[in-house]
């Protein structure tokens, strides 16, 4: 089989950690969770934008890029288990707690 030409592109590389941020639109696009669902997650307190206290409109909210990992997992679980919207916030809190505990465990 022929291989595709090798492309050297690195402008679109996004770091998924606590030092880099993504916008609301990017988070929706990359995680597969809709803007409306992200709004509900923020309203429930499960997801906190970095600039929530600055009275910014939701379009201008930004988030640590590491949350893409948890919210993408949430999106998979939602689709694969056909979850009800009202459990997503609770599930995100648990996913984040697991992520943090695993991170701390890896440091030991």
């Amino acid at each position: 089989m022929m291989k595709n030409a090798i492309n050297i592109e690195h402008s679109e590389l996004i770091w998924l950690d606590e030092h880099h941020e993504v916008s609301m639109g990017e988070l929706a696009e990359l995680s597969g969770i809709s803007i409306e669902e992200l709004h509900q997650l923020v309203e429930s307190g499960a997801l906190i934008p970095n600039n929530l206290t600055e009275n910014k409109l939701s379009d201008a909210w930004h988030f640590n890029s590491h949350c893409i990992v948890s919210i993408r997992a949430l999106s998979r679980l939602k689709n694969d288990f056909e979850l009800e919207p009202n459990v997503l916030g609770l599930m995100l809190i648990f996913l984040e707690r697991i992520r943090m505990l695993e991170h701390r465990l890896n440091k030991i």
């Binding site: 291989k3 050297i8 998924l16």
Partner: peptide, 24 residues
């Protein structure tokens, strides 16, 4: 179809670091 491409890993990555290559 096989997809093969090169990506630049910048210095400063940690063990277990996750990255995202948009559109790849």
């Amino acid at each position: 179809v096989p997809h093969t491409f090169k990506a630049r890993i910048p210095k400063g990555v940690t063990n277990g670091q996750k990255m995202l290559l948009r559109g790849k």
